[in-house]
């Protein structure tokens, strides 16, 4: 018997490699999107801070804009710096 597989259509779900399931700001799933967005993934990316916490980019930007003085991570109160790894 000769078995030839002409095409294998697999199914996979994608997910962010993050240390948590939900965004600490909007409490929505990382794999979903922030409340302002409709489409997940590229349109609503995650960002990591140097403190290793991560959020929806839109959420943390909104947060930082609402902080007049110190730009802190909402989780650990360290100064927020984007981790461009």
């Amino acid at each position: 018997m000769k078995l030839t597989i002409k095409n294998w259509t697999g199914v996979a779900t994608w997910k962010w490699v993050a240390n948590d399931d939900n965004c600490g700001i909007c409490r929505m799933a990382f794999d979903g999107c922030c409340p302002d967005c409709k489409l997940p993934g590229d349109d609503c990316p995650l960002v990591w801070g140097q403190c290793s916490h991560c959020f929806h980019m839109h959420c943390i930007v909104k947060w930082l804009q609402s902080q007049p003085v110190n730009q802190q991570c909402p989780m650990c109160r360290q100064e927020w710096k984007f981790n461009n790894k």
Binding site: M1, K2, L3, T4, I5, K6, N7, W8, T9, G10, V11, A12, T13, W14, K15, W16, V17, A18, G41, L46, W48
Partner: peptide, 19 residues
């Protein structure tokens, strides 16, 4: 920063068996 979780049991396979 993204990865895939495979759902092994889902999908379709087109195959040909030569006897």
């Amino acid at each position: 920063s993204r990865t895939l979780c495979w759902k092994n049991h889902l999908g379709i396979v087109d195959l040909e068996i030569e006897l």
